[in-house]
Nucleic acid binder design. Structure first.
Lengths: 247, 247
DNA sequence: CGCCGGTTTGATTAAAGTCAAACGATGTGG
DNA sequence: CCACATCGTTTGACTTTAATCAAACCGGCG
């Protein structure tokens, strides 16, 4: 499912050569798993790749679905999350340009993936991707590193969620997002556009919407950030924000 | 370091043939990464393996140490954790017989590993192990699956820690430990011996010692468990305990 | 016996959740 | 063009949960 879902546009399988051209000129090559691999094996990778577009709010796949595809994000933001029996949602992560979607997946997806913004992805057939992995150990090695990094990040986040105040969790989230954005497109601008809602941030930080809102207000009254509209954050004191996040 | 640490007994490198015999007869083979691999490549694995003993409370390695070794636990319980600036500790996991220690490690260890009980481990030289991985992709594949599983588990645990009451977290911990023990040595006994202290459990569940103790009392007054001494838990109503853990 | 560490229990406090209301931007229909 | 409804956000009042501080308890050991 996922691609057949109402708001999800599926651009269809391109001819291999056309797809290869796309891969060759892809701007996220240096960021994603394709990077080192695609150089040597462009055709094989292009052969199992198709490009996919998703509109903000649409679902790529749902926890429990048959896991037929892996993805890399080429544009926009994707969130993946688990829903609890209580109806609560835990967002496990936000994926940006170059990130791989499909780690820690077995036969079924163990989480739901939704488009936070309109976004583009490269879709790989899982079976074919796995065949490619067993043929080219470098590819599996790359992915192995990706899982390892993800594991480290989740472990760090767990520590933060368990022991830090709302204000610090928000500070950590803002600096994380700021850093990622700076890495993807460096700028001297100090304002960040947060594509996600307060609810999304709350579900990511294990807080209520109200607690997130109050944390924003707290940072604002300390002149660490300024808020235009809720999605537009100006960082007035990056150092203080980072200190808060790390302490 | 680690092996030179005060309470850590190091049994020394065995002759390759002796080590191979040990590996061949090893009771955790079926559980650990050695399993499928050691059958075909016993000598290579034995060649980089040495057996290590650790007394309860001793430190195998500390976060930030040069990461020179990987391990598998052959006996006893090992915990790995991160220490915060505030002095607080977050235990990331307990490792039992067959578990691999050293996932998500780069040049330096990203966590501290301590012996919860007296324990035995197989120690692999990291560099040699990595060379073995690049020679035999099956080995990397096995480890890849291990990291993936670990990632899934941590993600599940994060959800629980973020949203569940102390009582439920404890119930989840007890059922997890019960299940693992049942898997390792099935028995019709309904009592579990917890090798870790209340502080350890607290640091694992992101709670205070007092909160853990109160959670135990709550389960006791509901006749779900009975406590002999603090380390001896009789499960009176497994179903209820599991329900509580899952809800 | 008294000390000591780990554990339990009690009283108080702090943080975040919940419920409720107000706010502000956006979009629709009269 | 304005009244109105809507959705996401903010703010306030109150409640719940677990942290903190403090004291009692218990078993082992010198």
């Amino acid at each position: 499912m996922g691609l057949e879902a109402p708001h999800c546009l599926f651009q269809g399988l391109l001819a291999d050569t056309a797809q290869r051209k796309l891969c060759e000129s892809c701007r996220v090559k240096g960021l994603s798993i394709c990077g080192g691999f695609a150089v040597d094996h462009a055709e094989e990778l292009a052969g199992i790749t198709q490009r996919v577009s998703c509109t903000a709010g649409s679902t790529l796949f749902t926890e429990g679905d048959q896991a037929d595809y892996f993805y890399t994000v080429t544009n926009g933001v994707v969130q993946f999350s688990k829903y609890l029996l209580s109806g609560r949602r835990q967002i496990l992560g936000f994926l940006l340009k170059g990130d791989f979607l499909g780690l820690a997946v077995q036969d079924q997806y163990s989480y739901t993936a939704e488009a936070t913004t309109n976004c583009n992805l490269c879709q790989f057939n899982k079976k074919q991707f796995e065949r490619l992995m067993s043929t080219y150990p470098t590819l599996e090695h790359t992915l192995f590193n990706a899982v390892s990094n993800e594991l480290m990040e989740v472990e760090n986040r767990m520590v933060a969620l368990g022991h830090q105040l709302a204000e610090k969790r928000l500070a950590a989230f803002l600096t994380w997002y700021w850093d990622r954005m700076q890495y993807l497109s460096p700028t001297s601008e100090t304002s960040v556009t947060l594509p996600m809602t307060r609810r999304d941030i709350a579900d990511y930080l294990c807080l209520s919407i109200e607690a997130v809102s109050r944390a924003f207000t707290k940072l604002r009254t300390q002149n660490i950030i300024a808020l235009g509209d809720p999605h537009n954050v100006r960082i007035l004191n990056l150092e203080k924000l980072q200190d808060l996040a790390e302490s």
